[in-house]
Nucleic acid binder design. Structure first.
Lengths: 84, 84
DNA sequence: GCTCGATGTCGTCGCTCGTTGACATCTCGT
DNA sequence: ACGAGATGTCAACGAGCGACGACATCGAGC
């Protein structure tokens, strides 16, 4: 899923955490942060530190993929896709 | 590209910035941060703030995609994929 | 009603991220 | 060699992240 802001990332983190049957405390321990941090991160805190976020995602079996955005729709036309 | 740590992300940021023909100062202005921040981010500063990182990536036409990791190779077997 | 676990909120505080400014280094083009 | 722009480094400072502890709320089970 493409994430453009911290809120979407927080939602993903929460969902993935629950899918793994983990509590906030367990995730906090796995990432080595406080439970408060997990609450804030899941709530979409935009100022969370990058390394902690990456660690948290890995802890719930998620990885970050950085892909080129294509503001130009020329490529979409080539691929026969319609615009959003 | 899958990014597991801040260093890889910094490299991507730098490459994308140059591909767009932007200077560090121009990127800093676009993201509304100091030039010092861009230098640190490209160097792989792991403690950069999440929102600034996301803004910087968007400024160079990159988007973040969060995908499920599959430590278990059972899925690969199902899909008939080879490992490694 | 009561207990227990999970989740969220509210202060307080230390630490450090990000900023500003100045300066050094390097690479261009002339 | 010279000048201009891009990049990197250093020091000092304010603001806010993340930690910690205490407490409130909610749901499940007896």
């Amino acid at each position: 899923m493409i994430v453009a802001n911290a809120e979407q990332l927080g939602s993903l983190l929460r969902r993935a955490r629950k899918d793994k049957g983990m509590t906030q405390a367990q995730l906090a321990a796995a990432v080595d942060v406080s439970r408060q941090w997990v609450i804030a991160a899941e709530a979409g805190a935009p100022t969370a530190r990058l390394d902690l976020v990456l660690d948290a995602l890995r802890a719930v079996d998620l990885v970050v993929d950085v892909v080129p955005d294509e503001p130009d729709d020329a490529l979409d036309a080539v691929l026969g896709r319609a615009r959003g």
